[in-house]
Each structure stands twice: as C-alpha cells, then as structure tokens.
Design a protein around this nucleic acid. Structure first.
Lengths: 373, 373
DNA sequence: CCAGAAAGAGGAAACGCTTACCAAAATCAG
DNA sequence: CTGATTTTGGTAAGCGTTTCCTCTTTCTGG
C-alpha cells in the first residue's frame, strides 16, 4: 500500500508516480513537495532534504502537462523552418535545441516545405500545444501566418523582416557584408561576368540577398545582365535548372554566386554534367557555409552565416519576449554578421593567368586570401 | 462581458479561450461542448451544429495539455536519432512527422550525438513530457537507455535489435540483400580488392552492416584483408580518415563499400585530395541513398534504405503499441528491404577495360545495370 | 393513458500540479 | 509573561479537459 501506485487506481497506462506519493513518503504535504521541487527558499532545509530523498526513492518526475496547465506556461518553444531536409536547417535546429534545453525549454519543430497549408496547420498545432513562443526561421514569411499569432499577442521571432509590434522581435542578417566580400573576391580575381542564382523571390530574404548582390556589383561598376540573374528555389534541383540556362549564355559567365549552398551544390553538379571545370572554367560561390560545403568537390567558397549566432539570437530574443522580467525585454532587433570563406571553387577566370590546372591540384592554386577577406 | 476572456481574469499571458466560453456562447454545458468536439454520437445534431458555430465564432482551440492531463495520453511521440545533422535523419524525421501528424500526433525530436549524457537527458525529458511512445532510430542502442523506459512499460520501437519484451517492437532492416547486390555489382565489374568502411562498431547496426559485407564477399569466394576493413564514424570526417589509410595499402583496393553515404562522401573528398579518380581508379559504394547522393560528383552508387518505409513502419509499430485496440497490436517485427541503386561512382577497375575516360564523360560509361540489380 | 425504458444534456469529480491564503508554531519586544 | 511579528507548513482553489452519474425529457408498449 505504500508503493508508487498506491493512491491512484491504475486504469491509466503509465504507472505514474505523483507528487502525492512523494509527500506521503516524506511525511509532508504536497505543497511542501512542490515548494521543495521549485526551490522556494521558505522551505526548511531539513524538510527539503527529506523531500529530495523521497523523490529519489519513488522515482518521481514532475508531470509537465499539469505544470503547464496551472502555470499557463508550457516551457515549449516552436521552431518553424522552411525545409528540414536542407542541411542548413538541421544545423540550426541542433544549436537552437541545445540552447533551449539548457534553459529548460523543449522544442517543437516544424517545416513548412513552402506550402501554405502546411504552415497553417503548423501554427495551429503549436498554438494548441501552448508553446510559449515561436521562432519563424523560414527566411521569408508567408503572410497570413503572422496574423493568427499576432492576434494572440504571442512572443514571436522572425528573420530579416517582421511587423513592428510589441511582441515581435527580428533577427537582421547582414547580407550586405558577406556578399560584398564575395563579389569583391571574384572581381579581384578578374571576373567581370558574374551571374547570380537567387532563392524563390516571394521570400523576402531571397530578395534581400539578391539586392545585396546587385548593390555589391554596382559598387564595383559592374552590372549583371538580366539573363544572368536566375531565380532558383534554394534546392539542388533549382541550382541545376538555373545553371543549365546560364551555360547557354554568350558570353558565358565566368562566375556564379548562389543564394545558398544547396543551390551551389546543384550548380556544381550541373557543371559536372556539362563537363565544365570548377573553378577553371567557372567559379562558384555559395551562401550559408553548411558543414557539407567544405567537403564538396571542389570545396565550396561560400558566405558564412553562422547558425550558432542565429540560434543564439533566436533563443535570446524568444526569452526576452516570454520572460517579462528579462533584462533584454526591450530589445527588438538582433544583428547577425556574415563573412566570406574562401575555398577552392573560386579562382582566376580562364585566360587571365596561363595554364592553370584544375581538379585534384586546385587546392594548391594561388588564392587571394584564406578565410575572411 | 461576453467576449472570449469574460470568465477568466486575464492574469495569464495567452488570452485563452476555453471550453467554457464556447459553452456560454452556444448556450449549452461544457460537457456537451466536449462531446461535440470529440464527435460523440449521442449528442443532438442540432446542438452539435450550434456548438461548432460557437467554436468558430470565439476561435476556440482545445488545450492539449488539459486533454493530456485527464486522458493520460499526450498524443506526442518521441523520435530519437543519433545525429540530426546527418542528412539521412532529416529525411527520416520529415517522413515520420508527416505520418505522425496525419494520425494526430505531435513529435518530439532529439539527437543523441552518440553522447550517453545527452541520451540520458533526452529520455528524461521525453518521459517528463509524457510522450505516448518513443522510436529509437539511433541504429544501435546505447544500453542503459532501454532500462529506464522498459521499466515504465513504455511503447518502444527499436531498429535492428531490441529486447524481446511485450511493449517493444523492432524494425529489422534487411542489410543482407542490398549489400549483397552492391558486392555482386562490384565483383561483376571485375573488382577483387574491395575495402569496407564501417560505422562505429559499438553500434549493433554498424556491426550488422559489416557482417553483411563479409558474408556477401564470402559467397563470392572473396575475402577482404583485415587492413581493408576500416572503422569509420558514419561521418564525412570518418570517411576521410579511413580512406587516407586505405590508399596507403599495397595493393590499393579498387573499390570501397561504405556503411553510410556520409562516409562515402568523405571518401570522395579524400580521393579528390589525393588526386585519385572516381570511378576510374577506385569505385565507391555508399549506403542509405540520401537525397544528396545523386548530386555528388560523381553521382553515388549506393544501397537504398527507404526512409519512407522506415518511418512508416516506425509510426505503425508505435501505434500498435499505444492503441490497445490496434489490429496490429500483436505484431512485433517489421521488415525493411534494401536495394542497390547504381549510379556513376562505380565502374570497371582500371586495366580491365581499355581507356576509360572518367570525369565529365563518366555518365555515359557502360554500366552493368541501372537501378536494382 | 401510464409505467418503464431510452436518449440526451447537465453537474461535478477527477487528472497532477502551483499558489494564494491561513493557521500554527516559534521568535521577539516590551 | 503577554501580545505582536515572523517563519513555515497545510488546506484548498483552481488550470481546461474528460467522463461518470444523475436528472429530464421523450418515446414505446401494454
């Protein structure tokens, strides 16, 4: 009669051991147990000791559902990404989760796959599960999504752009800096015909990246002809399709800047199929610096956007919105830097230097810089 | 006074609209609302209609926490993977999540990163969140993990191997078939010196894959010398390290079979650095068939393990364990087939046919088969 | 036309926890 | 030594659901 399942008829599945079992065991009231568990200082240390011992003995785990129900806070965070299968996002998810868990939060993940219907149901589910806040890291908001959450005065974090409302915080990625470094790097190598493959242009972030490219080109007195500005889809398939168009151009671009690394990987593949050599025939620059980038053939020159920074900012911003006594409660914007990482997919354009070998030996080629420019 | 927040003092954050608001609006009791929501047939259709209308009007979403508390079932599933940043897993997660959500479940994801401490805390968290069941897709159980869950009579799904207990179901992957196809494919091309790079050998699945390789070799009267059997780590870095050893061998293997695709990608990268050509100098075969595999340079020949199949089986098995009236409740094992997908990282060993060109043109090379052998 | 059954709706008790509110014990000042 | 003040622990009221039980109401058959 003193076992964990004593007080409750075990009609339910998990032979759940509740706060009452602990109280009984320790010979105190459930209130005391609760206070001990929550480390409320008014409880007598000796009693607290007894409680902790009892907790250990009966193997008590506080029921989060019940906690959430009464406290109104679920200690769950929503994380919405556009595509979990794009390797950038798992890296982000990983970091985000580590940080969230360290703060005692659980994470509910969802990917929109760019489908409004999915997004809709995602929001619904998260609302229903009572998440304390949501980070929308889709790099481009599908409008309408916002509305539902905003109404509820939900702590919300967006990337790049979001409505200026009290509960909304924004992570501003400084695309300008990284992309400028990329373009200048290519220009310094002697490239003049530089193409760009964007993400889906209905995403604000994709537009922002493209604009950063155009601006950087303009600063150098360069301009990419309209047909060298392709719209991709932030996928390998999109990169392939775009590159297949670009190689038909005359003159053919000597370098391609991509809106993300997956696109760049697609480009590498397309050029492999058309037997163009990278970087001898065409230089390729990516964006994101996913882990995979350095293992591509050749290793990818790319603009790094640290998902560590991003995740850290997201969690911090979310907490600022959730915890009313948070010191950063007033902060509304976080800035994320970007920087170029030079590897071996970028080199002098053919003809500007004599007899460059390419594959295999290319990692020994002279380069303008290693690391940030 | 009739608004959604009428009855409850709004001390709490979310201006939560509860079942009471709906009841008031529809002019019925909360019991009736609950019954209507849960589509219990005894409720008068006309009343139900009124309830649904009221729900719509006040924007009611049932509170999952409260539901879980009273019903004892959270409708959350745990999904434990070894490494979310290994592209195989996001694909799996995606499928799993789609299926789970379709059945009305939410998914809590966690990756162990092969660290026992992480695993430990993962289990704790999931238990505390009251998940209805857990799928452990780490491809190799870190023992001790099991114990905690087993004690609670938790519905559990493992891959490859797990204790034979009433609440435990196992997904058996048929490594033999796919790996046999891979080895036979290489042998048919003329390869005799075939190396193997395994996963971390403390994982049972890694051992199973290696054993399947050894067995397939033996069937053909082949044997891989001990120093051609490397232990990797299921990462690109592991593949690189292992391959760097293998190229020092004399004679150098003409083909390498890898325990997963990430390892194979690492191998490709290592061979690029040592200026060996794939497949002309060395053929490479992967395992998993992640989406990325077909976009590698060259596209990777690999053994496909469908993560669709795997996810579907996992969800089904989990439901069988959770829902006591499930027709499949008695089924304890699910079988997952594997099959070879031939692409361009495998070809005749150098010398067995005259003058093979490699890169760029290799996709036009004669091959023994396209698709399954 | 009435007894009894069936059907439908409401009241209220749980689920496991937090937290106001209280009461008792302990401490202290006068 | 008494009355006021401070600990400190217990009691109970919820949190938003589900579900059992009871109470009407309506229908059926004799």
């Amino acid at each position: 009669m003193t076992g964990p399942r004593s007080h409750s008829a075990d009609r339910r599945r998990p032979a759940t051991v509740s706060i009452r079992d602990v109280a009984q065991r320790a010979g105190v009231s459930i209130a005391t147990v609760s206070r001990a568990v929550n480390r409320i200082p008014t409880v007598n240390p000796e009693l607290a000791e007894r409680v902790w011992k009892a907790i250990e003995e009966v193997g008590y785990l506080p029921n989060t559902q019940a906690r959430a129900l009464v406290s109104g806070r679920s200690r769950m965070l929503g994380l919405i990404v556009s595509e979990i299968t794009n390797p950038f996002f798992p890296e982000l998810v990983q970091e985000f989760e580590n940080l969230a868990v360290a703060q005692g939060y659980e994470v509910l993940i969802g990917s929109t796959n760019y489908e409004p219907a999915r997004t809709e149901s995602l929001i619904r589910r998260m609302l229903q599960r009572n998440v304390d806040g949501v980070a929308v890291m889709t790099f481009g908001i599908e409008e309408g999504l916002v509305q539902k959450l905003v109404e509820r005065e939900f702590p919300l974090v967006f990337v790049d752009a979001g409505p200026d409302l009290p509960n909304i915080r924004v992570l501003k990625v400084d695309y300008g800096e990284g992309i400028r470094q990329g373009v200048q790097h290519l220009a310094a190598l002697g490239h003049r015909h530089i193409a760009f493959i964007s993400g889906p242009l209905r995403l604000r972030s994709a537009v922002a990246r493209r604009d950063a490219f155009i601006k950087s080109m303009a600063e150098l007195g360069l301009v990419a002809p309209r047909d060298a500005m392709m719209e991709g889809s932030h996928t390998m398939e999109g990169g392939i399709a775009a590159m297949e168009q670009l190689v038909k151009l005359d003159p053919i671009p000597t370098a391609v800047v991509c809106s993300n690394d997956m696109t760049a990987i697609g480009v590498l593949h397309a050029l492999y199929r058309t037997t163009h050599k990278v970087p001898a025939d065409i230089s390729v620059v990516g964006f994101d610096d996913i882990h995979l980038a350095q293992f591509m053939l050749p290793p990818l020159t790319t603009v790094q956007m640290s998902c560590k920074d991003l995740a850290a900012a997201a969690v911090e911003a979310l907490r600022a919105g959730i915890e009313r006594d948070n010191p950063r409660a007033a902060k509304k914007e976080w800035h994320i830097p970007t920087r170029l990482v030079v590897r071996q997919s970028s080199a002098f354009p053919r003809g500007s230097l004599p007899a460059l070998t390419t594959r295999g030996a290319s990692h020994k080629e002279p380069r303008s810089a290693e690391g940030a420019v």
